[in-house]
Design a protein around this nucleic acid. Structure first.
Lengths: 251, 251
DNA sequence: ACTTCGACTACTGTCTACAATAAGCAACAC
DNA sequence: GTGTTGCTTATTGTAGACAGTAGTCGAAGT
């Protein structure tokens, strides 16, 4: 995942503790170290991250804006709890943004914009050959982000990256079944290659059609396991009794 | 504009200084008190707002996430400078989100969702009769936000509200010509009423078609004056020599 | 035994203070 | 006269501390 470390045009700087803390927290949440609904006490986090409270609080403001945590005024912060409605929202919005990117950018104006998705899909194929599931997923995310980049639309790309991160959060809640997704890794990469070719051809409608078909698969790999997870959850989870099924705060 | 004061379901709370500061800053920027590109020194703002630096910094993190200000790691924060590309991005994204809302929600499932836009359009007509231009604009924003709300899609509504605020920022940069927009206030309100009726009818395609026509008008009232502003700007503006035409930081 | 009132604990919200970095400016050398 | 170097100042980044509030546990009364 492209972390948001952005020191500027070219000048290199020690990234502020706020950025470091935000990246660390995001990683920890996505890694499942903090369960959805779990309380995030500031004091604990400061001693874990080795920083003071002000930068930590600013980092949490950032993550709040990204939808990873929810904060209630005097009751502290919690890891966002994703309901089925949330998953639905994430998937539909992600899909719509991708479609918009195609509509805006599919007769690709600047050929240089195609470099990034080409590299990503090549990496996907490489991972598929090596049967590297984790790398394949990572490269897949980079591919989609790069594909949205063809619109040359900064706000669109940022919104897409944000919703993509939230989708990762969706998948963090069902880590157990993540490994079982792709029946055929090579075929998975091939679908992405086909999507890229449609884009390269410049035929907007064909690209959109392929994207729609592509989206079906994506839905299956996120929404479906969520169901599996929930049923296995009510069965007998060890701890982490976060109140699943509750809506997030209306921030 | 629906400020982001959200203490929760029903419990009332003294809003934190962070929220107060964020709202104040936003208002000041939108009112044009701080020109695009202008440096936002923390010390000055603390004594103006009467608060300390930590809550102010957190508020600025929020506004950074909303796209109102850009921050460079050790060089401070500035009011976001909007290029023509930025304006284009804002308008296309806003339009696309509105369209998505229609696609998801136009055969309106829950009739209660139509209450808010109905109230807003009634208020628009009232303002139009009284020739209250300011009120008409405000009600117009509420109308569009409420219209997006028919999708019952929290993330979509939030994204829309965010981009709508940025559009307000667009308009803040050409305050001079804002008054000359609507040739006919009653006709302006009537267009919105028509759009609402299309939505109420449940005919998705008709609603989308009307929305597209509606969008044309919206483009004209934001993008065009931006051009006017720029030409009058290079002519001879008094101060505020913010480097217009430069891209924002890639945060 | 159940309910209610009270104090306690832990946490968040905020402030003041210190350290470090960057920009501006002046003096010096070439 | 121009370029460079060093200092000065202002501003940001971070730390530690204090005050206020929410949740909880216990005890007393009904």
């Amino acid at each position: 995942m492209t972390t948001s470390a952005s020191p500027g045009p070219d000048g290199i700087h020690a990234p502020s503790l706020v950025q470091l803390a935000a990246d660390s927290l995001r990683s920890m949440i996505l890694a499942g170290e903090y369960a959805p609904g779990e309380r995030l006490a500031e004091e604990r986090l400061t001693e874990r991250l080795g920083i003071s409270r002000p930068p930590l609080r600013e980092a949490m403001r950032l993550l709040e804006g990204e939808g990873f945590i929810v904060t209630q005024p005097r009751k502290g912060s919690r890891v966002a709890t994703l309901t089925d409605q949330d998953v639905h929202e994430i998937l539909t919005l992600r899909s719509a943004l991708e479609r918009l990117a195609f509509e805006l950018g599919v007769p690709v104006r600047d050929p240089a914009l195609l470099e990034a998705p080409r590299r990503a899909v090549a990496e996907m194929e490489d991972c598929a050959r090596r049967e590297d599931r984790g790398g394949l997923v990572q490269a897949g995310y980079r591919f989609h982000l790069a594909l949205v980049g063809i619109a040359a639309h900064r706000r669109l790309s940022e919104s897409y990256a944000a919703i993509q991160r939230q989708q990762l959060l969706c998948m963090a809640r069902n880590l157990v079944v993540r490994e079982a997704y792709y029946e055929d890794l090579v075929q998975h990469a091939a679908r992405h290659r086909l999507l890229l070719e449609r884009v390269e051809s410049g035929d907007r409608d064909a690209a959109l059609a392929e994207l729609a078909a592509h989206g079906e698969q994506s839905f299956a790999s996120v929404a479906l396991p969520a169901e599996l997870y929930r049923s296995s959850f009510s069965g007998g989870a060890p701890s982490a009794r976060g109140r699943a099924g509750q809506s997030n705060a209306p921030t």
